[in-house]
Structures are given as C-alpha cells and as structure tokens.
Simulated scan of single mutants.
Amino acid sequence: MYTWIWRHLPGGTALKTVQALVLVLAVCALLLFVVFPWVEPKLPFNDVTVDQ
C-alpha cells in the first residue's frame, strides 16, 4: 500500500517526502477532529458497572 502511494505521488524524492508527510498529517487531523469525537460517545468507557 505504501509503495503504491509512493509511486503515484508526483515529483522527486524530496517532493514525495513532503507530500507523504502532508498526507500523514491530514489523516491524523481527520482522525483527531472528526472520527474520534464522533466515536467517543459510542464507546463504553464511562459505563462503570462497579458499585461502591
């Protein structure tokens, strides 16, 4: 998969490296600001079943 992305990025090695870094940052931002806030209420981390 990574080689497919690398082969399809235009430019030389330096430009491909910058583009790959931008892609990684974009995916991280999408996960942090869109996906994780959407999933968080659906996760059972706050459903405590232990009584005092």
Rank of each mutant, 00 (worst) to 15 (best):
V50G: 05
W4R: 11
T3D: 15
L21K: 08
Y2R: 10
G11I: 03
V35C: 03
T17A: 15
V50I: 15
R7D: 15
A29I: 09
C28K: 06
M1E: 10
F33M: 06
V22L: 14
K42G: 03
L25Q: 10
P37I: 05
A29K: 11
T17L: 15
V48G: 11
F36G: 01
W38E: 02
W38G: 02
R7T: 10
N46V: 09
M1D: 11
V18K: 10
T49Q: 15
C28E: 08
W4A: 07
V27A: 11
L31F: 13
A20Q: 00
V24H: 04
T49N: 10
V27S: 08
Q19G: 01
W4P: 00
C28P: 00
V34I: 10
P41T: 05
L30P: 00
V50Y: 13
R7V: 04
V48T: 14
P10D: 13
W6H: 11
V50N: 10
K16D: 02
V22P: 02
T3R: 14
G11P: 08
P41L: 04
L30Y: 13
R7C: 05
A26S: 13
I5R: 05
P44H: 12
L21H: 04
K42P: 01
T13L: 10
V48L: 13
T17Y: 09
W38F: 15
P44C: 06
L23I: 07
L21E: 09
R7L: 14
P37N: 07
K42R: 15
D51Y: 11
V39K: 03
L9D: 01
L25P: 04
V34C: 03
R7F: 07
I5S: 00
T49L: 12
V34A: 06
V22E: 11
T13G: 04
P44N: 11
N46S: 12
C28Q: 09
W6S: 04
W4T: 09
L43I: 12
K42W: 13
N46D: 12
L23F: 06
A20G: 00
R7I: 06
F36S: 04
Y2F: 15
F33Q: 06
V27Y: 13
P41V: 03
T49P: 03
M1W: 08
M1R: 12
V34H: 05
C28L: 12
L31A: 04
W38C: 05
V22K: 14
A14P: 00
D51H: 14
P44G: 14
L32Q: 15
I5M: 07
V27R: 07
P41Q: 08
F33G: 01
Q19T: 05
F45N: 10
A20D: 00
P10V: 07
K42M: 14
V50P: 02
K16W: 02
L31Q: 09
T3M: 15
P41H: 02
V27D: 05
A29T: 14
A20R: 01
V35P: 00
T13I: 15
